[in-house]
Write a protein that binds this DNA or RNA. Structure first.
Lengths: 159, 159
DNA sequence: ACTTTTTGGTTGACATCGTCAACAAAAAAG
DNA sequence: CTTTTTTGTTGACGATGTCAACCAAAAAGT
């Protein structure tokens, strides 16, 4: 297993530790993710709701840009959410193509409920730690976010 | 009876910071995950290969326990991998039900190749950091793994 | 004006992913 | 020797996601 040492002094141990953490955190996130599934809505649907709520009114193409979902797929997600009365697709007055997406009261309630559940879940995890452990966790997370790329566009809405 | 026994003094800011990190890292991991897709094999298939290699010979039910994959789904994955000559399903001598799963040389090569690619990818990320930044990242990751639950069973094989 | 191109969105066809229940054969338990 | 459990396969199916064709409105080029 040769590793071209053209670049800095990065050890195999560091690389493996990095990958180990990624596996670890994938597993950790997997546990949280199942909570969304229990809600009866897919992650894509919840993310879509979340985006629609973020800066209304948004058009489908805004949501597409923000989430990276496929055009056709998103169209069906939106139709589904509209059928479930969670959002409203309102034709834009100034542009006959776009439809403004708005949360209905029912959608608002659902989204708030999901966010509340996610917060409670997060709180449970944090509660299991002591005060100083929690502080250290917070510091470490801030460090990692500062050090790794992607702070700007990162908005996956998972836990 | 102190109040904070029931619920420690966890602030909303902490909860939101925690969730923000989870979103951030989900997004970060998403980038890495696409590399597996480029290999022509699904994450589930690669994880299966990885498990088979971990402590051979393993039976399907061992892999099932380790990965959490559905029984029928795993069965099809194994058939597919066998069709592709990446693994061999060898009937166990002492138990007519189980089939021992073994990597073929071709499977070995593929798995090594994937691991190598993943390491290079990881190295690229680490290379983008300075020495002291990398040290801090390593410390932070170790901290988080130590503080959060799941160190024992965590083996998702993602990056 | 009137063509051409681009944009926003829908639809159909389709592959993949993943779950569930029914099933068979071997082994273990009774 | 019957019953139950374990191991694995299969069929059916829904959910997820991708791709290309398509349409109508708008923007751009002439």
């Amino acid at each position: 297993m040769r590793m071209s040492n053209a670049i800095p002094h990065i050890t195999l141990e560091e690389i493996d530790a990095f990958r180990r953490f990624n596996r670890f955190y994938t597993s950790f996130l997997g546990a949280l993710r199942n909570d969304y599934l229990r809600s009866g809505f897919s992650l894509a649907e919840v993310r879509t709701l979340y985006e629609i709520d973020a800066q209304p009114p948004r058009a489908a193409c805004d949501v597409m840009a923000a989430t990276g979902l496929d055009k056709g797929y998103l169209s069906r997600i939106l139709s589904h959410l509209a059928r479930e009365k969670l959002i409203e697709k309102r034709p834009a007055h100034n542009d006959g193509r776009v439809k403004h997406l708005l949360l209905t009261p029912k959608g608002r309630v659902l989204l708030d409920d999901l966010q509340e559940k996610a917060r409670l879940e997060a709180r449970d995890t944090l509660c299991a730690l002591g005060d100083e452990a929690r502080d250290e966790l917070m510091r470490s997370m801030r460090s990692i976010m500062r050090l790794l790329p992607g702070h700007a566009a990162g908005d996956e809405h998972t836990g």
